[in-house]
């Protein structure tokens, strides 16, 4: 009998030269496919040239990654695409989307750039929206794609959704029952069925995601045009009540917009919140909210980190930005503030 403890004693050469000569092609298709799933999509598609047994193996891979650019000429905020390369790239993406047949895609990641044709990008989004997808990451960099949310058919399977550069047209009702992580950046919302609907679309969106754990909303615009340029104005009428459900699972919140009533309401409705970040907000815009958040019992500093809702701690403000003194004075008086401290 061999003890597993004696493994090291065995001659490694004997193992390597064992009779198990087994060619990669001899692995069952599902295992070869599993190997391909660790490759970038483009490399996986390229294996179709190896032999007939490989030609359509890649179509069952449950992950699609279209982040490799059709051009190498990249600078800070734009990608210059060679027209001939773009044509090839588009036909590649179309072909992959046409043939891909995994019953459920674990992961889809697309990065489109402003030199792409918006209509093509829209078509890819529609094609992907028909599939059962668990993690969908779709970035339209530096431009905006109109996308009616009703084209996203399998909302109930989505666990991660990260969108950038879309004008999302929201149907009158929708639901993301399993969505854990939502990230929205440079999004313009609009109500699809009834453009005159007064409700704030972001509020509607997150209300439809009851099990959110992570929420990251960058710059976004309100439904109504009147709000679209109101970064500072929105502070003024910030006593407006925002109707939001309790986000029992929310632990991470990061915002890049200044519609403070919504932010504040999310924080208040997130009993398990561990992290709050607002990295891109101008410090002068933070002051007002800091005092309000602390009024509700959070330890905050200007970096936005909130460790807990504990009653007795002094937040360790290790930052040296200019609002430090402001923050300190409020964390000391926490709990003793009068009801009216928050009025503008």
């Amino acid at each position: 009998m061999n003890e597993t403890k004696h493994v090291e004693a065995l001659n490694q050469d004997a193992i390597l030269n064992s009779e198990n000569v087994d060619r990669l092609t001899d692995l069952p298709p599902y295992l070869r496919c599993h190997i391909l799933s660790f490759l970038p999509t483009r490399c996986a598609v390229a294996t179709s040239i190896l032999s007939k047994r490989w030609s359509y193996l890649w179509i069952s891979i449950p992950a699609l990654d279209f982040t490799e650019l059709p051009s190498s000429i990249t600078n800070w905020n734009s990608v210059v695409v060679n027209q001939a390369q773009y044509v090839r790239f588009r036909s590649y993406v179309n072909r992959v989307l046409l043939l891909s047949n995994a019953p459920c895609l674990n992961y889809v990641h697309v990065e489109a750039h402003s030199s792409f044709v918006a209509r093509h990008v829209f078509e890819w989004m529609v094609a992907i929206g028909k599939r059962c997808v668990q993690q969908l990451i779709f970035f339209a960099k530096h431009f905006r794609i109109d996308f009616p949310l009703r084209f996203l058919i399998f909302k109930e399977k989505l666990v991660v959704l990260k969108l950038e550069g879309f004008r999302l047209l929201l149907p009158s009702s929708f639901h993301f029952p399993c969505l854990h992580s939502l990230s929205l950046n440079n999004i313009l919302f609009e109500n699809d069925d009834d453009p005159s609907l007064e409700d704030d679309c972001l509020t509607r969106f997150i209300t439809s995601c009851p099990v959110l754990e992570e929420l990251n909303v960058g710059v976004y615009n309100f439904c109504e045009d009147s709000h679209s340029d109101s970064d500072t104005d929105s502070d003024e009428d910030s006593n407006a009540y925002v109707d939001l459900p309790i986000f029992e699972n929310l632990i991470h919140l990061e915002v890049g917009f200044t519609a403070w009533p919504i932010v504040l309401q999310i924080i208040m409705n997130a009993p398990r919140l561990l992290m709050f970040g607002w990295p891109d907000i101008n410090p002068s815009n933070k002051e007002l909210l800091l005092e309000r958040i602390e009024y509700h019992g959070f330890d905050m500093d200007e970096e936005g980190y909130s460790s807990s809702k504990s009653e007795d701690t002094d937040s360790d403000s290790d930052s040296d930005s200019e609002v430090k003194g402001f923050e300190d004075s409020y964390s000391e008086s926490e709990g003793s503030m009068s009801n009216d401290t928050t009025s503008t």
């Binding site: 483009r42 490399c43 598609v45 390229a46 179709s48 040239i49 030609s55 059709p70 390369q85 090839r88 790239f89 036909s91 590649y92 072909r95």
Partner: peptide, 11 residues
Amino acid sequence: DIKNENAWAFR
């Protein structure tokens, strides 16, 4: 033919 159809994948 395969190379042609997948031109971008074989760049």
